[in-house]
């Protein structure tokens, strides 16, 4: 069970309160009319899908209902940092220490 920190509610809660919303920081083609099939395909379907550190979006669906970004390790399932939409992650993952306690990683 993941333990996820909501940067708006400022609370760490169980994953069941949240909905996953896919890879973060994907930019929609800035000029949609001019975008090629290749650009649309890449935007819509192709993903990094890394084994390791992943930047992803979650929604606090059973809480404040807002979207935010999370950095998570897809192998250890450690949630390293949460940060609001439109911001960049800090260099030092702020919440890693509180969340990475053993046993919380599943």
């Amino acid at each position: 069970m993941l333990q996820i920190y909501c940067p708006y509610c400022k609370q760490t809660r169980e994953e069941e309160e949240f909905s996953y919303a896919g890879e973060a920081h994907i930019k929609r083609p800035s000029d949609p009319q001019a975008a090629s099939d290749k650009e649309w395909g890449d935007y819509l379907f192709f993903r990094k899908n890394p084994r390791g550190i992943h930047h992803e979006m979650w929604q606090h669906s059973a809480g404040c209902r807002r979207y935010f970004n999370v950095i998570r390790n897809t192998v250890t399932y450690e949630v390293l940092e949460s940060y609001p939409m439109g911001t960049s992650p800090s260099e030092q993952p702020a919440h890693a220490a509180t969340i990475s306690t053993a046993g919380e990683l599943q």
Partner: peptide, 13 residues
């Protein structure tokens, strides 16, 4: 599971 993962274990819920 709803989210990406390589851990070969899933969510209990």
């Amino acid at each position: 599971d709803s989210y990406n993962g390589y851990g070969q274990r899933g969510s209990f819920n």
